[in-house]
Design a protein around this nucleic acid. Sequence first.
DNA 1: TTTAATAATGAAACCGTTATAATATAATAT
DNA 2: ATATTATATTATAACGGTTTCATTATTAAA
Lengths: 344, 344
Amino acid sequence: MAVSIRDVAREAGVSVSTVSKVLNNSPLISEATTRKVQDAMERLHYHPNMRAKNFARQKTCSITFVARAERNAAFNNPHLFEIMCGVENALSNKGYSLTFINLAKEQDEARLVESLIEQKNTDGIVLHVSAVSKKIPRLLADGNFPHIVIGKPDFESELCWIDTNNNLSGSIAAKHLFHVGCRRIAYIGGGEDDRISLHRLQGAQKAAEEFGSAILPENIRQGVLTIEDAQTVAKQLIRENRPEAIICANNTVALGTVRAIHEQALAIPDDIAVISFDDYPYSRIMEPALTVVNIDVYDMGMQAGIMLLRKLKNPSLQVQSYTTLPVLIVRGSTVKSTKSELES
Amino acid sequence: MAVSIRDVAREAGVSVSTVSKVLNNSPLISEATTRKVQDAMERLHYHPNMRAKNFARQKTCSITFVARAERNAAFNNPHLFEIMCGVENALSNKGYSLTFINLAKEQDEARLVESLIEQKNTDGIVLHVSAVSKKIPRLLADGNFPHIVIGKPDFESELCWIDTNNNLSGSIAAKHLFHVGCRRIAYIGGGEDDRISLHRLQGAQKAAEEFGSAILPENIRQGVLTIEDAQTVAKQLIRENRPEAIICANNTVALGTVRAIHEQALAIPDDIAVISFDDYPYSRIMEPALTVVNIDVYDMGMQAGIMLLRKLKNPSLQVQSYTTLPVLIVRGSTVKSTKSELES
DNA sequence: TTTAATAATGAAACCGTTATAATATAATAT
DNA sequence: ATATTATATTATAACGGTTTCATTATTAAA
């Protein structure tokens, strides 16, 4: 049917293996034959069949991105797509392609990963932390299957992962507040068992100590899960202790907090400064725009892709991890001048 | 190395073709042999090699999703990922997988599509309209390569596409405003040559006529590209004509318009109602929350996937198109009671 | 009983490449 | 002139399935 490497060989008057070597620009082929073969390929409109190549080479040049994104995920978590674009970018630069799998509600992540490995249809796996369960490490690490996890799982394992330092993020947030003159700093955290929120708090506390200050226990609230929760908690906090600044563990908290401040007819940042984490679309649009400690998730995705490709090239490589640095984006919620600037 | 179909055949004491037939549950195999073979597979931990299968079958059971997403696309256009999740869902239900390709800035979409087809590494293509140029139809339609375009290109072609009816969306928006008692309705459009914005305006005008009314020329503004633009334009519009409601061609316009209204200390919706299109994360978060005419992009992606698979199964199928219906989401920016409800 | 029809299995070609080992040719050293 | 080495090229066996067609075993009809 389609024109194959044999047709090219016949047309060029050489052997099949010679054509194959030309295709893979092997150095063992003379210039003259190379030209002959290339001409023949041109004449016949030959294009290598990747299915056959993958089969013969015993690899697919494709890696699989697995996540568990709820419907409306793009709204709740725009980061996911951004990460994926970063990975895709890194891969496509090296001739690899990205397959996307979104776990369904009831679907078992371990079973999926297992069958991905069995099927031999992918060379490596990028697992978003939302799709990691305790059974995963045995499948990947023990089987020495090339992989990288985006986000650090909350259990010990030999997985390769890439993540950010939430402790440092919290520290950066608190330091910024001190820099702009705030002293009585409050912290409103996410769910009681939200590790990310806890780490950010710890970082903030450490930073406060470095400034010879502290985040007082009565200024710390936890267990906030919705915007409305946050609004209620913030309102109470403000009434009772009237802090100069509030660190919000995440954007849900931030939105409620801003509403609470407005509700009490106080001004941001003059009466109370607000800072949060992770740059979301509305962070820029809010009034005032929100100062956040952000991580470049696109870049994180790229790094993940690069690490995975490195592992693919050199399978004997050790288990590796990587931590991306948070970046402060200063906006109107912490400083008067609206002009936003970037610091590290 | 790995256990192959031949090993299974030997272990089960049958021929290779019999094992193959068991794998594809051919009806020609007796129950007894089927069991024998399945036992052997179990004993040897056999798993079919998809690379080999794809090669032998001359297909890959994977389709490729191509888009041109700028960095920060998830923020500017969360819909893209949502569409993709819809496509992925439809495909994975039928044993197909989705490969994602994000066109780089300078990358030529036609060349990419061409090479995708040549490489024979994908069974079909889903093209987001952001990745469609005039060279595309010839590659896909003429070559009869299975494809579907999400969004309707602005030139005539024989492409299969799936899109929504912006005219109808505009009409729904206007009708809703009439229903809640607004009469003097204004329209603030996007860029001068923004077809979507124009169609929405046309729909709104038609609806107004049905109500024996009209959107007066002095209440129509066009060429708005940024939030700031929109704010300026809206401010002027309000000063001059003081409409009862403003239809915003998109969310950028809506944000500027809302700011302009607040700036003049007017109330939404009491003084001026606001309606826009496409549900964005901040649409729900804004105060008041924004009434929008939305399309279910996840579902649109699913439909696209389903249409493409149908075409794959039955290649003789005619060129098809599909139009998803817009849905009104009523929120606080057009009605007092905040309780949001859905209408069609 | 013989013959035809049907059901179950197997042999071998095929899919389009890569990879390995063997061979032919040219260049250099002995 | 011969042996050795280096350089190009080729023949052929993988890779692991599917598929077509022939063959055998079984059942039904003549």
